[in-house]
Design a protein around this nucleic acid. Structure first.
Lengths: 348, 348
DNA sequence: CTGAAAGCGCTTACAG
DNA sequence: CTGAAAGCGCTTACAG
């Protein structure tokens, strides 16, 4: 099947290629009869202009890349799979397609070069990277080369770079969690931190400390532990924490995110601690899995649809050189009270 | 930032564009010194060949489209979100990218034209469509126009079309379910059918009937109902079925898939029927959600990773004109016994 | 081993 | 209102 080109259409319709092009692009200066004549031939021959030709004359792909740079089982977490869907839907609402790419990690050069190539060869008009460390040299490199990059959970204080667009969790969630536990009467609060190379983890860590200090709560180092952002890492960290408590458990544990909280659940159950009777647990994120966990997890929920919509929209505005696009947006979370925390007598 | 082209590289390296091209494409007839000289200039200038130029000379995009043509909440079902991930990963293992596209439905012309355009404009080398009816004229049209299309759950008996590649659930699951229930002693078996425009639903329906007849079980029309493929449709159908039973309930219900089975759970709970004590329920698919449902759902599980790997691989082989690519593949399921069926005395 | 030329399928000034 | 020409960034025979 020989591919049909605008040249063929021109001949069949008895006009020049210029005119065919004008019709296709809907220019105003084509009289209705000519337009109809050409459209008829186009339809009859199932002609579709080839991207390859259009690209060369400066058209853009109308496609953004979506790079998932984090490990983890995407399909099992409604949270992470919603990132994909939200991005695709937000892009579609602006007439953009998305090229999806799952990288296992960004620690090897091969993967990094792959991402760079995709950005550089004109396959996408911009790219969104999710799950990268807050300091990733190749991202700076792409930005310096003029590529538009959208980032989720990535923030550099004081920088204002026109082609780097970010969306972040707001900076209060850690403190929000402590405030909430304080109100419930908790004074002995443990913290499982996330992965400190992620902006959100650093932020939450700071929030916890701020909250503890605000309420004059004693920060006991045996109740404070560095974890990670996965369920497994939460489980491991919680086990160490519980072990070294030597029965002097905190009354509540703040997990760096919901996945970690699920890990804490598992560790607690192994130690025979009932949630929330023996120990309260709070997550951050609002993963729907927390609705079905036992007990349902109290957490700070974020509207990820909103977050990705914001990110995608601003990335596309940047592609289209809209002026004054907001570079960095912080989205606030809201306390979702479920069943993993109990009221206790703070004076005890 | 002016875009750098192979011409610039040629000048900087003191060679012709032909040579630059030869180096980039790794042709053998370039002496090492020339190659190194050119590569050095390429690296220093962060030059990446533009797709736009390459496309015009016959290169392919190395990208397949993934069209999700079904409704439903993708993010909440580990099953459906695994379809995306499995496709992306299978494609990546062959060096292909995937352009993902979520269509709400294929009932309106606008969506159909959108899909056709994406196929036709040379943006993808082939496309995979999931969730389409088994008879969808525009798919035939794409195939006639020579496009390579991969289809999940789509089969036309007796046709053998070289550019239509399919993967399907094998044709035994319905019968497998009846066999299993029969072995448990069930004789009064109800069936909730799916959406009969889907190949899998037709297939399962036939399987149920085959199984019932094989075991000489009476097919009572009040225990047979057309449902759909979503949880809501399963719920609605089950309510009607239970209502019209007038207490003469079947001892087991076969759901057309797991989502429908979850709908049956909900309806049963409203009718005060305990699963599996009062009524047994079997699904088909192997959705991981069934692991956490109450009670965990007995089902026929399919290896979707395998299914998508098979589909993607054969689609890519077809793009690359590999001879004798298998057009239609059926993947067998396996009984996953959980807690939703009980043994009863068949003679009762 | 390497360069000059032609060509891929479009669009965009330019001229009329 | 419309056509002829040039050009976008590559690769591929062809010639040497």
């Amino acid at each position: 099947m020989k591919r049909i080109t605008s040249n063929d259409i021109a001949k069949l319709a008895n006009v020049s290629r210029s005119t065919v092009s004008r019709v296709i692009n809907g220019y105003a200066d084509v009289p209705p009869e000519t337009r109809e004549k050409v459209m008829k031939v186009i339809k009859e021959n199932h002609y579709y202009p080839q991207l390859s030709g259009q690209l060369l004359t400066g058209k853009l792909m109308k496609t953004i890349g979506f790079f998932w740079a984090s490990g983890g089982n995407i399909a099992n977490s409604p949270l992470t799979s919603s990132f994909f869907v939200n991005t695709i839907e937000a892009a579609a609402s602006r007439g953009y397609l998305v090229l999806t790419c799952i990288l296992n990690d960004l620690d090897n050069d091969e993967n990094i070069n792959y991402v760079k190539k995709i950005f550089m060869e004109g396959r996408i008009d911009a790219g969104i990277i999710v799950g990268a460390d807050n300091n990733e040299p190749f991202i700076d490199e792409l930005i310096e080369l003029g590529k538009i990059v959208g980032l989720f959970d990535y923030y550099h204080e004081g920088e204002n770079i026109s082609n780097r667009i970010t969306v972040n969790f707001d900076r209060n969630s850690g403190e929000q969690v402590i405030d909430y536990l304080y109100r419930l009467g908790h004074r002995k609060i443990g913290v499982i931190d996330g992965n400190m190379s992620r902006y959100s983890s650093m932020q939450r860590h700071e929030g916890y400390l701020r909250g503890m200090m605000k309420h004059n709560l004693r920060i006991q180092s045996k109740w404070l532990i560095y974890g990670g952002i996965t369920e497994t890492s939460g489980y491991e960290a919680a086990k160490i924490l519980l072990e070294r408590c030597d029965k002097d458990y905190p009354t509540a544990i703040c997990a760096s995110n919901d996945a970690v909280a699920f890990g804490v659940y598992k560790a607690c159950s192994e130690y025979g601690l009932k949630i929330p009777d023996d120990i309260s647990v709070v997550g951050i994120d609002g993963d729907l899995n927390g609705l079905y966990s036992n007990p349902p997890l109290t957490t700070i929920s974020f509207d990820f649809k909103d977050m990705f919509y914001s990110l995608v929209t601003r990335v596309i505005d940047t592609i289209n050189e809209k002026p004054d696009v907001e570079r960095d947006v912080f989205i606030p979370g809201s306390l979702t009270e479920r069943k993993s925390c109990k009221y206790i007598d703070g004076a005890m």
